[in-house]
Amino acid sequence: MKILIVEDNASMRSLLSTLFKSQGHTVVGELDNGNSVLDDIHRLRPQVVCLDYHLPGKNGLALLKEISTDYPDIDVVFMTGSEDGEIEKLAADAGAAGFLRKPFGQKQIIDELQQISALRQQAMATESTAGNAAATAAVTAKQVPAASCGRKASRTAVLVDDNSSIRLLLKGILVDYGLDVVGQAANGEEAIHAAEAHQPSVLFLDVNMPILSGLEALPRIRAASPHTAVVMVTGNATRELVQQAAGLGACGYVVKPVRPAYVQNFLNKLFKR
């Protein structure tokens, strides 16, 4: 994979560059501040950005949000030495594909890259199989009641997330599982329409989205598609959020960064496999 390193510590940049090259990856650039990151991404076209949190010029979290919006096909591994537990949740909700807390070992970063590489290959295979029809699925979605969290007669799904790379990742996981992804949406309002139109057996619903959040849209989704099982997707699965979502009819939740094994285990329980 082609990797861009954004890290203000020269020793860390050198260590990461040497490690990545030893694993067969190509380091397309090394930056020591956040000022020109987006311009360099446009110029260098990396597949993965290793992004530090504390940077001169612009902090990594702000950059992560911009990368996720402008370059949704790029995977970001977010790195920080901060002990603040909220940062991991914020990074996940902003679209980070991986998270590393310093100091980390070589095996941790290698494992993160292997996971990302495997998911990219899975997503490419899914897109190849689905063809152009999959690209037109950016329609909308609808919602479900808590009583519908059991076995479903159909095997259809709708994906709702404002980050297209997360939708692509989830789609690959669900298609491999045997579900037919019949619709996608990027905000809560679109989600309601998509759920009503498709009446899916399961709908994955992001919590933090523009126009209508997942929690705001959830009751209307339930009303529009009462037999749909709604699964919340979030980087911040606090007890309060989980209880609120359950009270509104969600069947469960998936924590970002999304991991295929967890989603598959959840689906096994949902479909009584």
Rank of each mutant, 00 (worst) to 15 (best):
Q122L: 13
N9Y: 11
L61D: 07
P200C: 02
K89M: 12
P226F: 07
K142Y: 15
A250Q: 00
L203F: 04
D93E: 14
K269F: 00
D206K: 05
S128D: 09
Q264H: 06
S14M: 14
S14F: 08
V77L: 06
K2H: 08
S82F: 03
Q114F: 09
T156K: 05
L248I: 15
Y253P: 00
M1I: 14
V242G: 04
A147Q: 14
Q47D: 15
F271N: 04
L267C: 01
I67S: 04
P260G: 01
G188T: 11
V230L: 02
I221K: 08
Q199V: 06
A123D: 09
P200G: 07
A134V: 14
D40W: 10
E83T: 13
S22C: 02
A186H: 10
T156Y: 01
P219L: 02
L170S: 06
L38Y: 04
A96P: 06
D162R: 05
A97H: 04
L248S: 08
Y71K: 11
D84N: 13
T18F: 10
L90D: 12
D75G: 08
L31D: 05
A261S: 03
G24D: 08
G57S: 10
S82C: 11
Q47Y: 11
G24Y: 00
H54K: 15
G81R: 08
L19K: 09
S36F: 10
T126G: 01
E196C: 14
Y253S: 01
Q106Y: 08
Q115G: 09
A91I: 06
A92Y: 02
D32V: 10
T69I: 10
E83K: 15
G249T: 12
E240S: 09
G235H: 02
V37A: 05
V230T: 13
R155E: 12
L241V: 12
Q199I: 03
F20G: 08
R239F: 06
V231R: 02
A157T: 06
D161Q: 01
A10K: 14
L270K: 01
F104E: 07
R101P: 06
L16A: 10
V160T: 09
Y262R: 02
K2W: 03
K256W: 01
A92T: 05
Q47N: 13
I116G: 05
I5S: 09
K171T: 11
K102Q: 07
E112T: 14
N132Y: 12
S68M: 07
Q47E: 15
A123E: 13
A261M: 00
Q23D: 10
K171R: 14
P200K: 02
N268M: 02
N208K: 15
K65P: 10
